[in-house]
Amino acid sequence: MSDQPILEVKEVTKTFGGILALNRVSFHVNEGEILGIIGPNGSGKTTLINCITAFIKMTSGKVLFRGKDISGKPAHKIADMGVTRTFQIMRPYYSLPAYKNLVIPLYSPRAKRTGGWRGGGKLGDRNTVGIDILEEIGFERDSFVPYKMASTLPTGYLKRLELARCLALKPEIILCDEVFSGLSMSEIASMVPLIERLQMDGIALVMIEHRLRELFRVARRIMVLNFGEKLIEGIPEEVMADEKVKEAYFGSAEEIEEDMSHA
């Protein structure tokens, strides 16, 4: 059982009209592993997460979660199985205080089923459970931050709130869409241990990132996407040394020379 990957993506293809956004992308995530996905802008990283979690329909391909085919299921069913995601552009409930934001995921069928959150579940008070989760994710419990309206929170807290929404569901795997982007160096520095702790709790993570140095601290396996195609997969050092990856990020050597001659 343990050698079976928790998430297996097989030849996922997505076309928007005539544009090939994802071309037969395949990869897998092992139990409790952190997989980093990197690639230049527009390479299809977010589209890949959207396809896996059914927020957009994939054109063809298969997604297996613990060996079960989840492609074609609606988004809320997939989240219900424990495959959760964060959004790159944060999607909190702006009109509610931060801790009330967590009442909604805690009300979901999955949270009711998995219960377990210290007095949570069927008869528990979701407000207290919500504040507990916020504390775990780095909101200062005794400050007024958890009680502030989500619309007044800074980006750093909203990114945490995104993760907290996933945690409220007791996820088996979290697909993180750029949790480090838009954060200051010190905020990222405090996020990294958080990610490490999630991994120690046995949650598998897929992380889309542009902040490579921080990503390489937590992820030991990296996949590179370019123009919707998988370029390479491997350990960070190996991947960054690859010629194709350099070309995708910086353009090919000939192109650079050409640009230089124009300048």
Binding site: H76, T84, P92, Y93, I104, Y107
Partner: peptide
Amino acid sequence: LVLRAVKDNDQAVRASGMS
């Protein structure tokens, strides 16, 4: 709160595993 969340941000409600 769930109903208000549907108005505020329906995609986040879907991501929370609710129809």
